[in-house]
């Protein structure tokens, strides 16, 4: 089990005016092992989204160190971060964030465009991943013609095409009914079993239950951490 993420005293401070600042993250240190399934919880405004953005390389910390696979990436350029997001991360959002009026297939192919995967190969991979999330036969449906649950499956398929190491899921079930939520979460669980590290942001305890570890954020700090399932006993669920 290797350590893929290590945060050291991460701070993210937004200046509001010359003398007022918002300390969204106020010194977070944390380590994530490969294959882990972590739920980040906390009330709104606690800083969990900011943490998520920094972990997902969408944002950079104001201070502190972020080691990803042993490399300090806290001072990476926009370009380097984009490459990292493309190759190592997958994203699933509450609002799906699919391209509108575009087919499921094209949405899933999108990350491969920026990874220079040849079109033929990309198409093949997209078909595979869509089948994997249970959307076989829906490939050419446009995103405005399918249900919320299906949209989230498309998003998951898209997040997987470049074989990411970490999957970032920001309230993935926030816009779904409870039955669909269970389906989506079991999809995450099976992906985790295949070895993908999952970082999940949620405020619903029963969604957080799917994770192995749970951390609570409050006022930009980690308030508490619970280990709900021992990593070594993974797969017993």
């Amino acid at each position: 089990m290797s350590r893929i993420i290590e945060l050291k005293d991460i701070k993210r401070i937004y200046p509001i005016s010359s003398d007022v600042v918002v300390r969204a993250l106020d010194g977070i240190s944390y380590e994530i092992e490969e294959g882990d399934f972590i739920a980040i919880m906390g009330p709104s405004g606690s800083g969990k989204s900011t943490l998520m953005n920094i972990l997902g390389c969408l944002d950079r910390p104001t201070s502190g160190k972020y080691f990803f696979q042993g490399k300090d990436i806290s001072n990476y350029t926009r370009r380097q971060l984009a490459t990292l997001r493309n190759k190592k991360f997958g994203f699933v959002f509450q609002s799906f964030n699919l391209l509108t009026r575009t087919t499921a297939l094209e949405n899933v192919e999108l990350p491969m465009l920026y990874a220079d995967v040849p079109s033929k190969k990309a198409r093949q991979v997209a078909y595979e991943k869509l089948a994997m999330v249970g959307l076989k036969g829906r490939e050419t449906h446009k995103t405005n013609q399918i249900s919320g649950g299906e949209m989230q499956r498309v998003a998951i398929a898209r997040s997987l095409v470049n074989n990411p190491i970490v999957l970032m899921a920001d309230e993935p079930t926030g816009n779904l009914d409870s039955k669909t939520s269970i389906e989506i979460m079991s999809l995450f669980t099976s992906l985790n079993k295949q070895g993908i590290t999952i970082i999940l942001v949620t405020h619903e305890p029963d969604i957080a239950d799917y994770a192995n570890r749970r951390i609570h954020i409050k006022d930009g700090l980690i308030e508490s951490e619970e280990i709900t399932r021992d990593l070594s006993k993974r797969g017993e669920r």
Partner: peptide, 12 residues
């Protein structure tokens, strides 16, 4: 759309 493209690795 631009945000999505950037999130999945689209460069500037």
């Amino acid at each position: 759309e631009i945000g999505i493209r950037m999130a999945v690795g689209g460069q500037e």
